[in-house]
């Protein structure tokens, strides 16, 4: 990743993350197909909701006939971390138009957020909507197409898991986490490690008592507070 924030750089930067989208998207399509979802339903879910883990949860709940408000509440909880990510990412686009901000926010995902933050660390805080829209739109298209391919080929594909493709997304989080930790030179590595440690410990504790998605969000918030305290103490 270099410090260019052009259309070409956006295309180049997003390519590694596509493996993750394809792996999980195809897997989702297969699940949707075995749940007897029509192609139209799969397409609408991808286009309108566009969220990996939430789509799996929504599908399971629709199949079991859960009440609509319960499903919407679950989707909101699973995606509540988006509020934290969007607030964090919006700092870089304060000088762009409201329209540009809405466009970027509409297609922000865990992956493009992580990618954008890595980019911002490389460019010393410079991001623009051309670069971001490029990565967002490519990610969105590849996700929707992968889900549809999975739904179409559901009967032919045995199990995308045997190829290890589903792990691409975890590998990406590992890579982006490590690159993020080492790229921010203003922050001591010991502080970064402490933040990660607080996430692990608090997630395990919250996870015992709370729903996993709430535990995820709370552990991230706890670690941000801890990070502030630790850095002040230095």
């Amino acid at each position: 990743m270099n410090s260019d924030i052009t259309f070409q750089a956006g295309v180049k930067d997003v390519i590694p993350t596509l493996l993750g989208y394809i792996g999980v998207g195809v897997a989702y399509g297969v699940v949707a197909q075995t749940s007897n979802f029509s192609l139209l339903t799969v397409a609408l879910l991808c286009l309108i909701v566009y969220a990996g883990s939430a789509q799996f949860a929504i599908t399971t709940m629709i199949v079991s006939g859960s009440p609509i408000p319960a499903i919407i509440m679950s989707a909101f909880l699973i995606n509540s971390r988006m509020i934290l990510m969007s607030t964090s990412m919006a700092q870089y686009f304060k000088n762009e138009s409201l329209k540009a901000n809405i466009a970027i926010g509409s297609l922000l995902t865990d992956e493009t957020f992580a990618l954008g933050m890595n980019k911002a660390a490389v460019t010393h805080g410079k991001l623009n909507s051309k670069w971001f829209n490029t990565t967002n739109v490519i990610a969105y298209s590849v996700w929707c197409l992968s889900c549809l391919v999975g739904a179409l080929a559901g009967k032919l594909i045995s199990d995308p898991k045997t190829l290890g493709l589903d792990f691409a997304i975890v590998a990406m989080f590992i890579g982006l986490l490590y690159l993020q930790m080492i790229s921010d030179r203003r922050r001591k590595l010991s502080v970064q490690f402490s933040v990660v440690l607080v996430v692990i410990i608090s997630f395990i504790i919250y996870g015992r008592f709370l729903n996993t998605e709430i535990a995820l969000l709370l552990s991230a918030l706890t670690a941000c507070f801890a990070g502030m305290v630790i850095e002040n103490g230095d």
Partner: peptide, 19 residues
Amino acid sequence: FLSFVPVAIMAALFIENVL
């Protein structure tokens, strides 16, 4: 506070996938 979000969120997403 928000400057800690990227590392915290990515660590949490990783943990969610291995536990």
